[in-house]
């Protein structure tokens, strides 16, 4: 299966929207750097994420989330928080990584 990563803000680029449009059922999406803004509750694209959860595994990199003043309480229900080890494990578990730069 495929692991998608997004490192750009959904407010600034269409990387996240494109990623979600191309993520098939069973694949995973990992949000890193400014991509973590896509995982936040109360933001404009919340429904895109919450609708996808269940079909797609949505992950967010904890250190990047915390740096931007957010914690697990700020992320959309169902989004899983991983640390750097979790990032490596996700990459190892998937056959291919597609980075939406």
């Amino acid at each position: 299966m495929l692991l998608h990563t997004v490192n750009k803000s959904p407010f600034e680029r269409n990387s996240f929207a494109q990623c979600m449009g191309h993520a098939k059922k069973g694949s995973s999406v990992l949000l890193i750097e400014d991509g973590v803004f896509a995982a936040l509750k109360g933001a404009a694209n919340e429904s895109v994420v919450s609708n996808a959860i269940g079909d797609i595994g949505v992950y967010v990199l904890g250190p990047d989330l915390n740096a931007r003043g957010m914690t697990d309480e700020d992320v959309i229900d169902g989004v899983k928080i991983v640390d750097y080890t979790g990032f490596v494990e996700l990459a190892a578990e998937h056959d291919v990584v597609q980075s939406w730069l």
């Binding site: 904890g62 250190p63 990047d64 915390n66 740096a67 931007r68 003043g69 957010m70 914690t71 640390d83």
Partner: peptide
């Protein structure tokens, strides 16, 4: 944003 914590990221 309040509460920024970069300890885990090293910046």
């Amino acid at each position: 944003k309040k509460g920024q914590n970069t300890d885990g990221m090293g910046m």
